[in-house]
Design a protein around this nucleic acid. Sequence first.
DNA 1: TACAATTATGAAAGTGCTTTCATTAAAATA
DNA 2: TATTTTAATGAAAGCACTTTCATAATTGTA
Lengths: 335, 335
Amino acid sequence: MKNGKKAPTIFDVSALSGFSISTISRVINNPEKVNAETRQKVNNAIDQLGFVPKAEARARALRFMGRIGVITPFFTAPSFIQRMRGIANSLSKENFDLVIYTVDSNNRLQSYLSSLPLTGNLDGLVIMSLPVNDNDVKRLLDYHLPTTLIEYPHPLINSVEIDDVEGGRIATEYLIKKGHRRIAFLGDSDLPEYSIHPVSFRLKGFRKALKSANIEVPESFIRLAPYNQEQARQIAKELIDLPNSPTAIFAATDLQALGVLKATRQLGIKVPDDLAIIGFDDIDMADFEDLTTVRQHLDESGRLAIEILLSHIADSSRPVQHVYLPLTVIERLTV
Amino acid sequence: MKNGKKAPTIFDVSALSGFSISTISRVINNPEKVNAETRQKVNNAIDQLGFVPKAEARARALRFMGRIGVITPFFTAPSFIQRMRGIANSLSKENFDLVIYTVDSNNRLQSYLSSLPLTGNLDGLVIMSLPVNDNDVKRLLDYHLPTTLIEYPHPLINSVEIDDVEGGRIATEYLIKKGHRRIAFLGDSDLPEYSIHPVSFRLKGFRKALKSANIEVPESFIRLAPYNQEQARQIAKELIDLPNSPTAIFAATDLQALGVLKATRQLGIKVPDDLAIIGFDDIDMADFEDLTTVRQHLDESGRLAIEILLSHIADSSRPVQHVYLPLTVIERLTV
DNA sequence: TACAATTATGAAAGTGCTTTCATTAAAATA
DNA sequence: TATTTTAATGAAAGCACTTTCATAATTGTA
């Protein structure tokens, strides 16, 4: 198969197969554009020589690597996955490879952030729901690695964001408009050090809306719990057991809202009559469960991030873009 | 530092500094061969432009980081995502990058399969729920690209599989043991040409189990529908409306089982008393919905695939491994 | 001071690939 | 059968550098 010689080039394959280098290149990159018989012969020659195209030469000729990196928190929350889906979908249409870097500690985040821009084997980077500091940004800029941030903004870098305060406000106002006065808030706690915490902004919006409406919230109505359904269910039960319990709960993430919903089912509480529930995110399951929620269009955020990124890769003179995704209450059956 | 332009090339530095590209190149690669004053000027120009020689960057990229590719069907079914999660999780613990190749057509699959082994970019490959032919396998082997298949086996390549026939049998027997005699089957149809179809094996198991138990199935009890909840819900309603309707439904995927479950809620049918439902896969949502199902431990399949892959990367003399994942009925509340 | 060495530089020829464009052969249509 | 389309191929022009070789300027030597 391989003879001990120098690494074979596309020219060797051309010589052995009798076809031009253009055809060899085609067999490798656009096999469907070449006659089956020819393709077969070329492939034979490739196999015979053990030819492996050099990535560096390829990148040089193409002027890009065809590879986008995504730095994302540990693959676990449904919302991350839906963003990823948006990213993967639009990327595959554009014929880019997707390289995923999962972050499970501050250390790892920093290590990615400091090495990735230097390696030169990425055409662009998406940083999802993770904080970057000025130093990281400077490096990204210095090494000309086009980047889009999702959820965490920075003035010098493209971003796709939502206004969490506003989102919290919208959700709460919706509840108020429906006549609720005793409204509880359920958010997540125990966030890992490397991650960001949008929920605290949603809480801010919650407070703001109530203040505008001149409604007092007892502190016992504001609860934080680890981000999972089990704990949310637990808290929901506690809230329901409170004397003068809330008539509505705003859960700052859908996952937790679903936990609350489950609690109501177990307790035989009627939703929305006895208790209204509104979530935040609009994950896939929200639709299935008919959960009323604030949609932030997760898939779209991924799609958009890629769109912006690719446009900046194509034309790096474009000005930095900061896109705000609209937030809307999706009315379903739980309020 | 950088003005919004394209990434500068050695030519830009040449133009700005007034020296030829040869000199620029020398300043970078053999600084001692160029006059100190010239070198200074060139360096100034380099700094001014923020020029980063691509090749050098790439050299630095020779960091110790491996790269694992995963070829996966279009990022959509929850089961794929859970497998991915298993993969991403175990990979992030090791020093490997994860490159994702999403397949949305036969063409693309073939193009990945024929080009990936050649590029030498990957240290290992996982092919998820996608069929490979002997030719593909030969290429993988010839180019020494360690590979693990998930769900679709091949004698010459590592694989992580489940026995779908057996799974269908288990689910059906479970229903029979619970006293059901009129059992319907709901599977998915309209599979894209490039994908595999485990559900047909589950149907085989279904038939087998019924035969062993001497139970006849009317053909009207065996239904296929596109893979989504909406259609599943529709079909469920039709089944329920049948004269002498089934007392149990085996949905060959959880997603469809959940569609059925939703139909029962809308129709006010009591589960499991009026209708029992069993699914297959055990996706996250199954737990939330208390769906009785056959667990195939999706996360684990991803984890295992990586484990096998890495061990083969470390020691290529290892014999091919075919691992069968156990299937068990997870008893929850719908049967 | 004449001539060889040395040093600093640029022109141009690679490097291994991709892609555009033109050409030819084959198929489809009139 | 003549003519337009389409498919399959090759020639050649990039791509972003590195390297070789030739040339000019400077220094060293007798």
